[in-house]
């Protein structure tokens, strides 16, 4: 069960410097923190959006969710951590992998 703030954990997942789709991160967080339902899904996704608009993640690729793996007819986003994100991530005492 996750014990750090959600955004800390999201940043930590991106600290591997690989690109991750939002739905991958959202489902991983939900699993780790024992969350269920659309409300939490949207709430975690909003955390990712906030991190991106704060300049810590960069939106590198988008595709339309045709099959409904996340939300049918909506955009899926792929993010990668930025230098600023790495700095903030290490400020937050996160493991730098």
């Amino acid at each position: 069960m996750g014990n750090r703030p959600l955004k800390f954990r999201i940043l930590e997942l991106y600290l591997d410097e690989k690109e991750h789709w939002n739905y991958e991160i959202v489902s991983k967080i939900m699993e780790e923190y024992g969350m269920k339902g659309d409300y939490h899904r949207d709430s975690i996704n909003f955390d990712i959006i906030e991190l991106a608009s704060g300049g810590m993640l960069k939106d590198v690729e988008q595709k339309v969710d045709e099959e409904g793996i996340y939300k049918k007819g909506f955009l899926l986003h792929k993010y990668v951590i930025t230098d600023f994100g790495k700095v903030r991530g290490s400020d937050a005492c996160l493991r730098y992998v």
Partner: peptide
């Protein structure tokens, strides 16, 4: 609770 505990960074 989780955020409160992260005093120094947050």
């Amino acid at each position: 609770g989780r955020t409160l505990k992260e005093f120094n960074p947050c």
